[in-house]
């Protein structure tokens, strides 16, 4: 008797399990379906800039999507300097339930250099951009480098604290701008190399303005120039590459672009729904208010078309200069 009871329980339990799995097989009619979850993949660990933007935006995307209920959940898929998560987004099921944020530099350069398996970043489905700011080159205020011309005419090589991901910046300065540079590799991200500049251990480092703005206003760091095309509204006195007389072709490539993308081949109708919701969320007063309060988050929303255009331009640029960058990397021993 007891055994029979137990068997009934087991069967009931297994069928419960089956029912639980059923939704996984169900097919979609409208998009987005009520009660579904949209994954917002972040290729970087929680807490950093790449993570805070989506985490702040996610609830607003949820509000602007045409559904009664559902969730937009941020998921950190970390690894290979952001490449793992970016790849995960690219190869996800293109049903519109997976989107993500990528850094243009990460998805365009390493695959071309053969550091990681190749995929074509220009084939993402684009939804927009949080911002696309040029990297800025800064030094300690006490440093011998008072301006760009000091940098340009430096007799001793200027030490540049960076990590492997910033090697594109080094290449641009050393090869395309003709500066006398020595890269000091092995810093763990831009905060670490910024600390090295504060210590006076290295001469310069690069980063996006908002990540060192307070050190700039307090007068501890001095900005020498930036990689953008025009003046940056937050630090208008800083010369851009164009101001310094470099060709337009190489300007605006070394940027920090936080692009919202989805896997290749999301059906147009679904992509359009997502695009609308994300654009509305990016311009939502609530989102802007949170960003303003934070001081660090500085959204400068770009539409899907603009994002697509700039990402493709970056990808095309690196493809064109592939061999030169590789040659530079070989100098450090990379093969």
């Amino acid at each position: 008797m007891k055994k029979l009871f137990a068997r009934v329980l087991t069967v009931g339990y297994l069928s419960l399990l089956f029912i639980f799995c059923l939704p996984l097989f169900a097919s979609a009619d409208g998009f987005p379906e009520d009660g579904k979850i949209i994954r917002f993949i972040v290729p970087n660990p929680p807490g950093g800039g790449m993570d805070l933007y989506p985490r702040t935006l996610a609830p607003f995307v949820k509000n602007h999507l045409p559904w009664k209920e559902g969730e937009v959940i941020v998921e950190n898929i970390v690894g290979a300097g952001g490449y793992t998560g970016s790849r995960e987004i690219f190869y996800s099921k293109p049903d519109g339930y997976t989107i993500g944020i990528v850094m243009d530099q990460v998805v365009t350069l390493p695959p071309i250099l053969g550091q990681v398996a190749y995929f074509d970043a220009s084939k993402y489905t684009f939804f927009g951009q949080f911002n696309n700011f040029p990297s800025m080159i800064f030094t300690n205020s006490k440093s011998r480098l008072k301006s760009f011309s000091d940098l340009k005419h430096s007799k001793n090589p200027v030490t540049y604290g960076c990590d492997m991901q910033q090697i594109a910046n080094y290449w641009m300065m050393a090869e395309k701008m003709g500066l006398n540079m020595k890269p000091i590799l092995g810093y763990q991200g831009s905060s670490d190399s910024r600390l090295a500049v504060l210590r006076g251990e290295v001469d310069i480092s690069t980063s996006e303005y908002s990540s060192f703005a307070n050190y700039h206003t307090s007068g501890e760091l001095r900005i020498l120039f930036h990689f953008g095309k025009g003046p940056d509204k937050r630090a208008p006195e800083v010369p851009s590459m164009l101001d310094l007389g470099y060709p337009e072709e190489i300007a605006g490539i070394n940027t920090v672009a936080r692009t919202i993308v989805g896997p290749q081949g999301i059906p147009d109708d679904r992509a359009e729904i997502l695009r609308k919701a994300i654009w509305a969320a990016l311009n939502d007063p609530g989102f802007i208010a949170i960003c303003e309060k934070s001081k660090r988050l500085e959204p400068d929303p770009k539409t899907a078309q603009e994002a697509e255009k700039s990402t493709r331009a970056t990808a095309a640029f690196w493809l064109k200069h592939k061999d030169q960058v590789k040659a530079t990397m070989n100098e450090f021993g990379y093969r």
């Binding site: 929680p46 807490g47 950093g48 050190y215 001081k295």
Partner: peptide
């Protein structure tokens, strides 16, 4: 003071501070 968190937990804590308008730095 320098924006370099020691543990993943501290990293998120720093993110939370940023969201609330506190920027790591000398101030």
């Amino acid at each position: 003071a320098f924006g370099i968190p020691a543990t993943p937990g501290m990293a998120v804590l720093m993110g939370g501070l940023l969201l609330m308008g506190l920027v790591p730095g000398p101030e």
